[in-house]
C-alpha cells in the first residue's frame, strides 16, 4: 500500500516535470517573435536588406534607436495613447460607478426598464455604429480632439453592468449604518461604498485601458491629424508606406520602442493586473 502511494507520487512528480517542460517550451515559442523583432532592431538596415539571418551575427548597432530619438513621432503618439487610454479609463470608471450605484441602490421611475435597455447595448458591436458615429462627431466638431477619441469608449454599457452587479453584492446593512449617521446619499456613495468597490474598479480600469490602448479603427478615422495619432495609428502609418524609406531595422526599433513602456508598466503591476483580470471571472 505504502509502496503504491510512493510510486504514484513519483509518477505525479514526473508528470509535473513533463508539463512544466512543455509549458516552458510554449513560453519560448511565445517570446520568439519578440526576440526576433528585438534582434532585427539591433541591425543596420543595409545589412538586413541583404540577409536577415545576419541577426545572429555581430555587428549589432543602436543606430535605429538613436534615429528614433532624433526624429520620430513615436513620443507624441505614445503621449496621445496614454492620455486617451487614461482619460477613457477614468471616464468609464466615473460614469459606471455613478450609474452602477444608481441602478443598484436607488429608486427612480422606469429604472428596471432602463436597466434592461442598457443591457441590450452589450450586443451592439462598435463597428455597426461607427460610420454614423463618425458623421455625428463631424457635426459636433469632435474629430481630432482627445474627447473625440475618448467618448466612444465611455458609451459602452459593460462597465455599468459590472459595477451594478458589484454594488448589489455589497450588503445593504452598510448603507443603513451610514444612514443612521445622517450621511447624504452622495456621501454614502462616495465615502462608504465606492472604496469597497476598488477591486471592481481595478478590473474595469484595466479592461478599459487595454481596450483603448489597442483600439485601431476609431482613432484611424477620428484622430487623423498626425499630432493626434495614437500609437497604433502612428506605427501603422510608417509600416504601410509604399516607399521603402524607413528600413526594416528602423521599423522594428520603433515597434520595440513603442511596446516596451507598456510591457514595463505591465511587469510592475503584474500582480494587480492578474488579480484584477481574475476579478472579472468571479
Amino acid at each position: 500500500m505504502a509502496a503504491q502511494l510512493a510510486s504514484g507520487a513519483v509518477g505525479r512528480r514526473l508528470g509535473d516535470r513533463v508539463i512544466l517542460a512543455a509549458t516552458i517550451a510554449l513560453a519560448i515559442v511565445m517570446v520568439l517573435p519578440m526576440l526576433w523583432a528585438v534582434g532585427l532592431s539591433l541591425k543596420s538596415n543595409a545589412e538586413l536588406l541583404v540577409d536577415t539571418n545576419s541577426v545572429l551575427k555581430a555587428p549589432w548597432t543602436l543606430r535605429n534607436y538613436y534615429d528614433i530619438l532624433i526624429g520620430s513621432g513615436v513620443f507624441r503618439w505614445l503621449l496621445n495613447s496614454i492620455i486617451v487610454s487614461v482619460g477613457m479609463s477614468l471616464g468609464v470608471l466615473a460614469l459606471s460607478s455613478l450609474a452602477g450605484y444608481g441602478f443598484a441602490r436607488l429608486e427612480f421611475p422606469g429604472r428596471n426598464v432602463i436597466f434592461v435597455l442598457v443591457l441590450f447595448g452589450l450586443a451592439i458591436p462598435e463597428q455597426a455604429v461607427i460610420l454614423v458615429r463618425h458623421q455625428l462627431f463631424s457635426d459636433l466638431d469632435l474629430h481630432n480632439t482627445y474627447a473625440g477619441l475618448m467618448l466612444p469608449g465611455m458609451s459602452a454599457p459593460f462597465g455599468v453592468f459590472l459595477m451594478t452587479q458589484y454594488f448589489k453584492a455589497i450588503p445593504t446593512e452598510v448603507d443603513e449604518a451610514a444612514m443612521l449617521d445622517n450621511a447624504s446619499r452622495f456621501k454614502i456613495f462616495w465615502r462608504v461604498l465606492l472604496p469597497m468597490t476598488l477591486p471592481a474598479q481595478a478590473t474595469l480600469g484595466i479592461f478599459t485601458f487595454l481596450h483603448a490602448w489597442n483600439d485601431y479603427w476609431w482613432p484611424l478615422v477620428s484622430g487623423t491629424n498626425e499630432q493626434m495619432y495614437t500609437l497604433t495609428v502612428g506605427i501603422a502609418s510608417t509600416q504601410m508606406n509604399f516607399a521603402e524609406s524607413a528600413g526594416l531595422g528602423y521599423l522594428m526599433a520603433q515597434a520595440v520602442f513603442a511596446g516596451l513602456p507598456i510591457l514595463i508598466v505591465y511587469m510592475f503591476f503584474q500582480k494587480y493586473i492578474v488579480r484584477a483580470v481574475s476579478g472579472a471571472a468571479t
Partner: peptide
C-alpha cells in the same frame, strides 16, 4: 505619402 525618412534626412 512617399514615406518617412526623418532619421536620414531630418
Amino acid at each position: 505619402f512617399f514615406g518617412t525618412c526623418k532619421a536620414e534626412y531630418g
